[in-house]
């Protein structure tokens, strides 16, 4: 008798746990679907979560939902040495066809994603801007072309940090 109660308790606790796990899986998949639909629709919503990510892999995944491969068709123009980390000129362009997006990440910054640009029909696959860099860091340019991601990386040495920007 005693043992059957014990068993019942075990079963019910297990089923509760399974229930929780099932809800978690369903919820997570739901969020994932929501994200990819939002990306596919290319709406003009600000990608808040991508800008909060600490690592470049997480930021790229949050922004595009996939990973990038290195390509020499992504051109990243940034100085070898930046005397002022508060204003580092960075330009990205690409010779790839069907470019739909360009993102720029600074790996040593508190949040790696610095800027993401949507290249709408008619716009050239090229952008220039100025970024802040906390310290010497790799700068990564990510280009989305034909639904795939390509990247280029360059190290920029910073002699005076840009957080005082």
């Amino acid at each position: 008798m005693k043992s059957s109660i014990w068993n019942d308790a075990t079963v019910s606790r297990r089923s509760v746990l399974q229930g929780i796990a099932a809800v978690a899986v369903v919820g997570f998949t739901g969020i994932r679907f929501g994200m990819s639909e939002a990306l596919a629709a290319a709406n003009d919503k600000y990608p808040e979560d991508a800008f909060k990510q600490k690592s470049e892999a997480d930021a790229i995944k949050s922004l595009y939902g996939k990973t990038a491969e290195k390509s020499d068709k992504v051109k990243l123009d940034a100085p070898e040495i930046a005397e002022n980390g508060a204003v580092v000129p960075v330009a990205v362009s690409s010779s790839l066809p069907d470019v739909t997006s360009i993102a720029i990440l600074v790996t040593e910054n508190p949040n790696t994603l610095a800027a993401a640009y949507r290249i709408l029909p008619g716009a050239a696959p090229s952008v220039s801007n100025r970024l802040k860099m906390a310290k010497t860091s790799n700068v990564i340019a990510v280009v989305e072309a034909g639904g795939k991601l390509y990247s280029a990386t360059k190290e920029v040495k910073v002699t005076v940090g840009g957080c005082g920007g």
Partner: peptide, 13 residues
Amino acid sequence: PVFIADWGPAVSK
């Protein structure tokens, strides 16, 4: 729209 920029706080002043 022809171009949309999404910026984080790492864009310069």
